[in-house]
Amino acid sequence: MSESDNPTPVGMRLQGVQHFGVTVQNMDRAFEFYTEVLGGTEVMRDGDFHGSEIHNTILTDEEIIAADRGIVPATIGVPDLMGGTQRLDVRFVQFDNVVIELLQYRNEDQSQGSGDSFAEPREHMSPAYPRSMHICFYIRDDVDFNQFITDLEAESARRGMTQVKANRVTTVRTEQERRDAPGNANTFKIRQGKSDGWALIYCKGPEGEQLEFVQALDPVKQTFAEAKARHEAKRS
């Protein structure tokens, strides 16, 4: 039997997750948050991408949708990379086990990293929408999770990043109620079932992006370790 008749399964050809990407409204603000607040390290930055190849690579599907609907592509957030009216800039930020890619689509008359995106930010940011994505960060086992959230909000506010707000486990319906919630209301801790030992909080980032912070203690920590070992065994 030839190799083509019995190919290596698709999933066995992967090396894991390389990065998560988030399109931002303001590149400098987002970069400051992910490097100076969350402590990531810059990998590289590049930009001024435009032309037909990059436009088609990223935006063909949206162009087809606009053509089918008979509408101007820009009305559904499609930048003109092909003609160069808009440009794409990227920055990569390294964390312990994953890379975050920040992308900004800006107008050509703006320099890299300055100004706002050419498109307006989305108004509906519920994580329940299909196609919504989030970036999840591990918190070390020895860190006080509730205090981490308090400090994250305070440090972000000090930098003018007022969008960085964590949800609470208690019911709040105003920003004042959110601020007044006790510190022990910051973290949802699961103490039973398969997820026993898992703690999480959902938080918006400086661009309105959905973030999650988690802590995984035993027994769920062991569950993940065993699954990782089984996965690595399949590849050996």
Rank of each mutant, 00 (worst) to 15 (best):
F49M: 02
A199P: 05
A166F: 02
G197M: 11
S126H: 08
V22T: 14
T23P: 07
G183K: 12
Q15D: 01
R13I: 00
S117I: 04
E53N: 08
T60G: 01
G193C: 12
P127A: 01
H50P: 00
N56D: 15
P219I: 14
E62P: 00
I190K: 02
R131E: 01
G197T: 12
T170I: 14
P73M: 10
F224V: 10
E177D: 01
Q192K: 06
T171K: 07
R235S: 04
T8G: 08
H231T: 06
P9E: 03
G83D: 01
L217R: 10
G208D: 02
N56T: 14
L211D: 02
G77A: 05
T171E: 10
I58V: 15
R140Q: 14
V164P: 04
L59K: 10
D5K: 09
F188N: 09
G40A: 12
V43C: 09
G11A: 02
L103T: 05
I71M: 07
T171I: 03
Q112V: 14
V10T: 13
A74M: 10
S52L: 07
A185L: 04
T174D: 08
G40P: 13
T171G: 00
V164F: 09
G77F: 14
R69E: 05
R159C: 11
R91C: 04
T85M: 06
K165W: 00
A66D: 07
S4Y: 15
S111M: 14
A67N: 15
V214W: 03
I71S: 06
D116I: 08
G11K: 07
P182V: 04
V37A: 15
T170M: 13
F49Q: 04
R69T: 00
E101T: 05
C203Q: 05
F145R: 02
Q192W: 05
G47A: 02
T170W: 12
E177V: 04
V90M: 10
Q104G: 01
S52C: 03
N97R: 14
G83C: 11
K194L: 08
S114D: 15
R91V: 01
T223E: 11
F224G: 05
K194R: 09
T174Y: 10
D142V: 05
V22D: 05
F92A: 12
N186D: 03
F145C: 06
S236V: 04
M161F: 15
P219L: 15
W198S: 03
V37H: 14
T171L: 07
Q215V: 07
L81A: 08
G16T: 05
K204A: 04
V164W: 00
P182E: 07
L103S: 08
F148L: 09
I201D: 08
S4A: 12
G115M: 03
E153T: 02
M12H: 15
V93H: 11
Y129L: 10
K189R: 11
D5P: 03
L200F: 13
V24K: 09
T150Q: 13
A181S: 08
F95G: 06
G39N: 02
A154V: 10
F137I: 11
E226F: 13
V99N: 12
Q110H: 11
S4D: 11
